[in-house]
């Protein structure tokens, strides 16, 4: 049984669907990257999984001793946090909140958990520093430590490398990989960084503009170049120089073949016009 099963999920903002009928299953220990152009509903899908936005249709089922509340979330940086007076430790331990019940203060166990997770992220010596004064990479480490306080099974990351320099980016991927490999934590990451998504993840969910999507193991993804068998029109967002090399696939344009896509589109438009 899968850890997370999404079944025909649709999410809408003001009646307009951003996600339509997406289904996939995530196993325990998977490393899934969600990619796609802006506006294809990546973040919305993530928020749907987290329960932050309501689903219009379909359902998301959790299993293997896991529930929605067992997810650690690494959100996009919030501009309000730029001058927020909070120490690293205060931020990290706030991840322990969900298990608290009605006790107003943190227990010793929770304090230890927070310190341990800071150690894991190599941030222990900075625990009394102000969060707002840290570098982008350090901030992400702190937020990762906080996510670890909230979960030991699934971490969901929303564009974690936005604004990081190459060194910090690399660093971030290594950390996430370590959590995935050593602690068997399921990783679900929304990203625009396709090359690294392919390098590190096991499975890819590629959302297209026309409500089509690709979900499957990375190896197959590379063969198809991110296209879905019945539609390639909007595929111009994928690993560099990838082409669909599967002869049985109906896909007939190269991945970077924008020109061809345009021609196809025009041809289709012509047909529609003719039909009227």
């Amino acid at each position: 049984m899968s850890q997370i099963t999404c079944k025909d999920v649709s999410i809408a903002y003001e009646k307009e669907n951003v996600i339509s009928n997406v289904s996939f299953e995530i196993e325990k220990g998977d490393y899934v990257s969600i990619i796609g152009e802006n506006g294809t509903g990546k973040s919305s899908l993530l928020k749907g999984i987290l329960g932050l936005v309501p689903l219009k249709e379909g359902q998301i089922v959790f299993d293997e001793g896991c529930s929605r509340r067992n997810i650690g979330y690494l959100s996009q940086q919030n501009p309000m946090q730029k001058d927020f007076p909070a120490s690293v430790y205060e931020v990290v331990i706030s991840g322990c909140l969900k298990n608290k019940g009605f006790l107003p203060f943190y227990s010793k166990k929770e304090k230890e958990l927070a310190i341990n997770n800071l150690k894991k992220m190599g941030m222990e010596q900075l625990k009394n520093s102000c969060y707002a004064d840290l570098s982008g990479g350090q901030k992400q480490r702190v937020l990762l430590a906080r996510a670890l306080c909230a979960t030991d099974s699934i971490i969901v990351l929303d564009e974690p490398i936005t604004g990081l320099d190459p060194v910090a980016t690399n660093d971030m991927y290594k950390l996430v990989e370590k959590l995935n490999k050593e602690q068997k934590i399921t990783i679900i990451m929304v990203t625009h960084d396709i090359d690294n998504a392919i390098k590190y993840s096991d499975k890819i969910l590629h959302l297209h503009r026309n409500n089509k999507y690709y979900f499957g193991p990375k190896e197959d993804y590379l063969v198809h170049g991110g296209c879905t068998p019945d539609c390639c029109m909007d595929v111009k967002y994928g690993p560099a120089d990838s082409e669909c090399s599967d002869p049985s696939c109906k896909c007939h344009i190269s991945f970077n073949g924008k020109e061809l896509a345009k021609q196809t589109r025009n041809a289709l438009k012509g047909n529609e016009g003719g039909m009227k």
Binding site: G51, S75, V91, S94, G95
Partner: peptide, 17 residues
């Protein structure tokens, strides 16, 4: 503690239930 969490990062607080 919850007030801190909600003030600092509302989405995270919501996501943890």
């Amino acid at each position: 503690n919850p007030i801190f969490a909600v003030t600092f990062d509302e989405n995270f607080a919501k996501a943890t239930g």
